[in-house]
Simulated assay, not measured.
Amino acid sequence: MSDPAARRLSSGKLVIATHNAGKLKEIAGLLEPYGLDCISAGSLGLPEPAETGETFVANALIKARAAAQASGLPALADDSGLSVAALGGRPGVYTADWAERQWFEGEPGRDWYMAMGKVEGLLQAQGPETPRDCWFSCVLAIAWPDGESAVYEGRADGTLTWPPRGTMGFGYDPVFVPQGHHETFAELRPADKHAISHRADAFARLKAEQFGA
């Protein structure tokens, strides 16, 4: 992997390697001041590569490189997930997998309420005194069509709550209460969430390196 300082993004099209409209909107909002025209891999009809990595870094690079090579444009991917201390760091890199419906759970697709319920069920099985410490991780990977890449990592610590609260987030946001707050990520206004999220932490590192911000 190349030194991230050796290559900079410039204004123009940037493929966001996601098929998730909520994630595209959030990332595009964070990059809006820098003159980048963010388009999703989904809107380009690009397939989602198999995320075979065992770390957030590996999976972010898989997605960014696949989108860059398929589109001929610079691409940015994130791999993010929830880790719960009492569950040995699970679901971790398998965060999205926990939301995938099995054949007996209805139509194919992701059910985030089901995923949140799986985490809660495992915690409750350990007893009412089980610590609920957790953290969101985010790795941002930029890849260029020639194979060069850069990686930036962020983290947000917090605790889990139940039942889910709020409608403004996605994924596990309705059960994640960030450190120093009483509202879940899904209850916070988007601007307030962006200021403290794991993705914002990773983007702050990206912006400092890529744009001197």
Rank of each mutant, 00 (worst) to 15 (best):
P49H: 12
A50G: 06
A50F: 01
E51N: 02
E51Y: 00
E51V: 02
T52Q: 07
T52C: 08
T52I: 08
E54S: 15
E54N: 10
T55E: 13
F56M: 11
A58M: 03
N59M: 05
N59W: 03
N59K: 01
A60F: 01
A60T: 06
L61P: 08
L61T: 10
I62A: 14
K63A: 12
K63N: 13
K63S: 12
K63M: 12
A64D: 01
A64L: 01
R65F: 06
R65S: 14
A66P: 00
A66N: 09
A68Q: 00
Q69V: 15
A70L: 15
A70P: 08
S71H: 02
G72T: 03
L73Y: 12
L76W: 05
L76Q: 14
L76K: 09
A77I: 04
D79L: 07
G81A: 08
G81Q: 05
L82H: 12
L82T: 13
L82C: 14
S83R: 14
S83I: 05
V84H: 03
A85S: 06
A85L: 06
A86Y: 15
A86E: 15
L87N: 04
L87M: 05
G89D: 00
G89H: 03
R90D: 12
P91R: 05
G92H: 13
G92P: 09
G92Q: 13
